[in-house]
Nucleic acid binder design. Sequence first.
DNA 1: CTAATAAAAGATATTTTTATCCTGAATTAT
DNA 2: ATAATTCAGGATAAAAATATCTTTTATTAG
Lengths: 145, 145
Amino acid sequence: MMFSKACEYGIRAAVYVTLQSLEGRRVGVNEIAEEIDSPIAFTAKTLQQLTKNEIIHSVKGPNGGFEIAREDMDSAKLSMIVKAIDGDKIYTGCGLGLKECNAQKPCPLHDRFLDIRNNLRNMLESTSLFDLATGLEVGLTYLKR
Amino acid sequence: MMFSKACEYGIRAAVYVTLQSLEGRRVGVNEIAEEIDSPIAFTAKTLQQLTKNEIIHSVKGPNGGFEIAREDMDSAKLSMIVKAIDGDKIYTGCGLGLKECNAQKPCPLHDRFLDIRNNLRNMLESTSLFDLATGLEVGLTYLKR
DNA sequence: CTAATAAAAGATATTTTTATCCTGAATTAT
DNA sequence: ATAATTCAGGATAAAAATATCTTTTATTAG
C-alpha cells in the first residue's frame, strides 16, 4: 500500500526478531518466515539487507540465527528499515512522479503532500522496534494474516 | 512513492484536461502526453480508465479528444481517480501487508497508520480537479519535470 | 458517401518486483 | 578434524507493472 513487499516482510521480520530477542532467543529464517507468514527465501534476502545495514545482527552455524541487542531495540527506528530496503523515495519523491518537485517548482499536489509526508516521516522516525515488539508481547497486535 | 505510475499519469493527465477545458479546448492524447511528459500509449490507457469511470469525457473523430464539463470539475475528486486506477487498497490495505488487519486484530502499525491514512484520504476526498487546475493556470504549479 | 481523424481495444514486448533454488562460507558441537 | 547447521550470495524463474504497436470503431468535415 505504501511499502514494497520486501519492506513489509522486512519490518515484520525485524519485529519478530526483536520480540524473540527480548526472550533471549536467537531465531532462524525458517522460523521467522513461518511466524510472519512470508516466503522463506525472499525473506532471507530482506534479512540480509537488514544485517548489512546493521539494524539486526546475524550469527552463522549451529544455534545461529538473527538477534538484536536490547540497547539497539530503541535506536532501531522504522525509518532505518524503510530506508535500507525501499530507499528514501518515500521521503524525497514527488507524489505525482515529477523528477524534481520542490517549493520553487512544485507539482499541483506538492503542498498538500508535505503534511502527509511529514506525518509519515515523524511516525517512522519515532517508532522503534522495541515499541512495536511490546504490543506483540502482550498479545495486542499480530504479525500474521 | 504512493501511487502507481498509471495513477500518477492519470492525475496529471486529468489536471491538464481540466486546465484546457477551462479554456474551452478539447485535447488529444498526443498533446496530453507531451504536456505532462508521459509515454503516449500508456497514458492513453489510463485516460480510458478515467472515461470508463466517467471522471472525464471523451469524443471520437476529428476535433475529438478529452474534456470535462465545468460543473464536473468540482465534484471530480482525486480520490475518484485513485480509486479508478489503483483501487482502494490505499484506504483499506494494511501497511504491513496483512490480509486482514483491523481494530480487532491489528498489525503493530495499525493505530499509527490510521492517522496517516485518514489524513491522506481527507486530502484526496476534498481536493478536486478544479482546485488543482487553478494553481497551474496562474503558473504556480507544474505538471512536467 | 468518402476520407481523415481520434479514441477504444487487443496483442505483444520490456522492465521491475517478487519468489525460488542451488552453491559457498562461516561456525559450532562432537 | 568432521559433520551438521545456518546465513550469504549468485543464478534463475515467475508474476506484475510499465510500455509499445496494431487493428477496430466512432465521428466529423468535406
